[in-house]
Each structure stands twice: as structure tokens, then as C-alpha cells.
Computed example of a mutant assay.
Amino acid sequence: MPAPDPRLRATMHLVLLACAPGLLVLFWLHGWGVLINLLLCGASALASEALLLRWRQRPVAVALADGSAWVTAILLSAALPANAPWWLPVIAASAAIGLGKQAYGGVGRNPFNPAMVGYAVVLLSFPLQMSHWPGQTAGFSHSLSLSVASSDQIDAWASPTLLDVLRHNRSLTIDELFGNHPAFGHWGGWGSEWVNLAFLLGGLVLLQRKVFSWHAPVGLLGGLFLFSLLAWNGSGSDSNGSPLLHLLSGSTMLAAFFIATEPVSGCKRPLARLLFGFGAGLLIYLIRTWGSFADGTAFAILLMNLAAPALDRWAQRREQVQP
């Protein structure tokens, strides 16, 4: 039986460790629902991978040992609302592995980011459950009861995020929202600003360890910053939010350092990676501001996954014609 690629396994383990600061902050903010999501995503991802590998007559133990299924589960659990109904992470993780990974032949062959495939499936299918996050820390028994509760109970207990509020605001200024609305924190969304800073810390560790190059993260953050700055119309009631608000809200840092940097579905050449990230940053801003979804990270990454082969070919031709 072939052994798992030691380099792949080491990289996956390092990514898992780098996710720890962000997950700990999520746990501190939202309680045990984050851990329940993680366990449900992990169990569903491993079970789906094992079943599909057995059906495809591939070595199950080798594939499960590389850690890629756990990375997908971690990214999904960080992106899904805490205390979501139990079936939401199960469906998301199963779709991520089945539709985003094994349907194309397994690890190293997926043209789309598997975690974003799973996220997009549940976002399109269950937009109500995906649009609300808890506004308080829940104990274990409370989180467990919410996980198996009806959608009506969860909707009554949960609260909209900053990006949801900003999209539907028509009367309050940005200063009034920051001063009075519970979804707003100091610089970005309540809690999400600290989550973003924690994932930024983990991403910088991966960058320092040369797990990926700087091109995709800098491109994404630069694109989001530039277009939010150009479209920033002050703090009035019709404001789209400042660049700092967009950088520290939603899943910005998770997208920049853990999703846009996925090597298989992303670009291979440095210039193409930079353009990949820049395009993702632009799309995130456009979807947040004028699209039908509050964040837009999943769709931005998936659309850029489609463009990745063309960007690589263009970058290659450009390198060939340079003296």
C-alpha cells in the first residue's frame, strides 16, 4: 500500500495549526457551537471521503492520513454560523468532499476550492440559516440544544451580521451604527474584527514558513482595499463602509490566507496568483455591496477558480516574451 505524501501531510498539519488562533477566538466569542460545527464537519468530511474512496476502489487509509479532509472541515467550520442546525455542517462538508474533491479524482485534481463548494451549496440552499450568527456566548448544553432545534428557534435567537445590516441600512449613519448596533465593533463587525486579526496572525505564520507565496493574499487584500477606498462615500446612511471595515469584517483574512492560497484550484505562476487575488478582492467587494449575498467570498473564489487556467496561460506568455 502506498504511503501518504509526507510533504502534503506536513503542510496540512501546519495549516491546521495556523487555523488555531482564529478558531480559538471564534470559540471565545460564540461558545461551544463552534466546536460542534467542527466535529460535525470533520466527521462528515472523513465519512464522505472514506465512502467515496471505497466506492472508487482507492486506498482509504492513505487518503485520510494526508489531512486534507480535516483542512476542508476546519475551513468550513470557521465559515459556517456558530450553532447552526446540525444538518447544515453535515451537508456542507459532504458536498465539499463529494462535489468539490472526489468528483474530480481526489486531492490534487480539484479545479474548485472544496471548502467553498460546500459553503456555496448550503448558502444557495439555506440562505436563512446561513445569514445569522449568534450574538452571545452559549454554554455547551445550550449550544447542543440549538444545534438540534428548529429553524424558527435559531432565527429568533441569532442576530444579523455587520455586512447584513450595512446592506439593508437606509436611515442610520455609519457612526450611529458603530455607536448603537450590536453587530458593529470597534473597526469592523462585532467579534469578526478579532477573528480576522487571529486568522491574519495564522496566515502570516504560514507565509513566514513559505507554505505559500505572498502574491494571492496581497492581491486579495489590495483589491478589496483599493475598490472599497474608491467607492467609499463617507459615513452617511448610504455609505458602503470604509476599507478598514471591509478588511476586518466577514471572512476577509480567512479568504486571503487560507482559501485564495489553495494551490490546486489557484494559479501556479506568481503574476497570475497576484491577479487571482486581486480579482477575488474586487469580486468580494462587488458582491458585498451590490450582490445578493452579504459576504460573497465563496462565489468570488469559485469564479476566480474558473479564471485560473487562463491567468496562468497569460502569465506564461508574458514571461516568454520578456527579454
Rank of each mutant, 00 (worst) to 15 (best):
R209M: 09
L64G: 01
G135A: 09
P2E: 13
G118P: 12
L275E: 08
P89N: 09
W133G: 11
Q322A: 15
A310T: 05
L146V: 04
S141G: 01
P85C: 05
A255V: 11
G241T: 06
L51M: 14
A183E: 05
L224H: 07
E262L: 12
G188Y: 02
A79S: 15
P270F: 00
L207P: 03
S249G: 04
G234Q: 09
W187Y: 14
A280W: 00
P59Y: 08
A20C: 13
G31Y: 03
P2Y: 08
M1C: 09
G185F: 05
A3M: 14
P263C: 10
V25K: 11
P21F: 07
D152Q: 15
A95D: 06
A198T: 06
V165F: 04
G135W: 00
E49W: 11
A47S: 13
R109L: 15
L177A: 05
S145N: 14
S228N: 08
A280F: 04
F184K: 04
M304S: 04
L197M: 12
W87I: 01
V165D: 11
A231L: 15
A84Q: 01
D66G: 11
S131R: 05
L220W: 01
K101L: 12
R56D: 14
S159Y: 07
F27Y: 14
A65V: 00
W86R: 04
W87A: 02
L76S: 06
P217T: 13
E262H: 10
I91V: 15
P89I: 05
L16N: 03
T289M: 14
A61Y: 03
L14Y: 02
E193K: 04
N305M: 06
W86L: 13
A92W: 00
A82T: 06
P323S: 09
N305R: 03
V121I: 07
L16W: 06
A255H: 09
H168E: 15
A308C: 11
R317P: 12
W70V: 12
N233T: 14
D152W: 13
G100M: 02
G279E: 06
P323G: 13
V211H: 03
V165S: 07
L24V: 10
F225W: 14
L206V: 02
L14F: 03
K101G: 00
P59H: 03
W86I: 07
L201E: 01
Y104A: 07
A310W: 14
I91F: 05
G100F: 02
A255F: 06
L302V: 03
L39K: 00
I284R: 01
A92R: 00
R58G: 00
R54T: 00
A183Q: 02
I174L: 15
A156C: 08
A69L: 03
Q316K: 15
I154A: 14
G241V: 07
G223K: 02
T137K: 15
A78Y: 09
A307M: 14
A315G: 11
L303I: 11
P85Q: 04
H13L: 15
S141L: 15
F199Y: 13
G291C: 08
A69I: 03
N305P: 12
M1E: 13
A103Y: 06
R288G: 07
A95W: 00
L124D: 10
L144S: 11
D155P: 00
F212Y: 12
V62G: 07
S249V: 01
